[in-house]
């Protein structure tokens, strides 16, 4: 069970694909102009990640080492195609607003990275869990960044929720403030870079605070070291 706890911590925080590994920045920065766009792409990426992790893990002993990367890419491409067709069918407007970034999930390094680094070395169950946690960590950053940019740029939150959740969600839009001159910087790509930098900074601050709080274990050692093999 400790494995699962560790994988959760790795995916959501310590080794977060967006904040720490800095993988998949292209879709991350391009589509997070609103909360719902971020959520949509986050879920799509997570589903692809789970599917590809399970499949790669299942065939890990059948694929020869020399050709593993092309095989992984084809598996990922297959799952991306599935997701793309599903979104085309059920969330057509979101599909249109995400545009090229849905097929581009294929090139998201976070996915092939997990296939290579984790799924190809572990059993399907744990690989699926890793995909879920890495996907959740990625989606979380997309959603936070999207929400931040939407609030700053347009003064709303959850605008266009109906594109993901159907007509029920039409009234979910929260209008925090109305303005004639929106803060365009937040919506434009530079705002994504700045927001991303701020999120990473916040994470580093929290990490530093946590590290400062946990007592140093070396303090217990009173014996003076004379050798240099620390």
């Amino acid at each position: 069970m400790n494995d699962y706890k560790d994988i959760t911590l790795q995916g959501m925080w310590k080794n977060n694909p967006a904040l720490v590994q800095l993988l998949g920045l292209c879709p991350l920065l391009a589509v997070t102009a609103t909360f719902i766009n971020g959520l949509g792409l986050g879920i799509a990426t997570m589903l692809v990640l789970i599917g590809s992790n399970i499949t790669v893990s299942l065939i890990r002993n059948l694929v020869r080492n020399e050709i593993r990367i092309p095989v992984f890419v084809m598996i990922i491409a297959a799952f991306v195609t599935i997701i793309q067709l599903l979104m085309n069918a059920f969330t057509y407007e979101l599909y249109l607003s995400l545009g090229i970034f849905i097929p581009l999930i294929v090139t998201n390094c976070a996915i092939i990275g997990r296939a290579e680094a984790f799924a190809s070395k572990n059993t399907p169950g744990i690989a699926a869990f890793d995909g879920l946690m890495m996907g959740l960590g990625f989606a979380l950053v997309l959603v936070v960044l999207g929400g931040m940019r939407e609030v700053l740029g347009a003064g709303t939150l959850f605008a266009g929720a109906d594109r993901l959740f159907g007509p029920v969600a039409e009234s979910w839009t929260l209008t925090l403030f109305k303005t004639d001159s929106p803060f365009l910087l937040a919506i434009l790509p530079p705002g994504a870079f700045l927001g991303m930098g701020l999120l990473i900074a916040v994470k580093n601050i929290i990490d530093a605070k946590l590290a400062a709080r946990t007592p140093k274990q070396t303090e217990k050692a009173t014996r003076a070291r004379v050798t240099a093999d620390t």
Partner: peptide, 10 residues
């Protein structure tokens, strides 16, 4: 530049 690209009209 931040102001110019954020509030081009004003």
């Amino acid at each position: 530049v931040v102001l110019l690209i954020s509030f081009p009209a004003a």
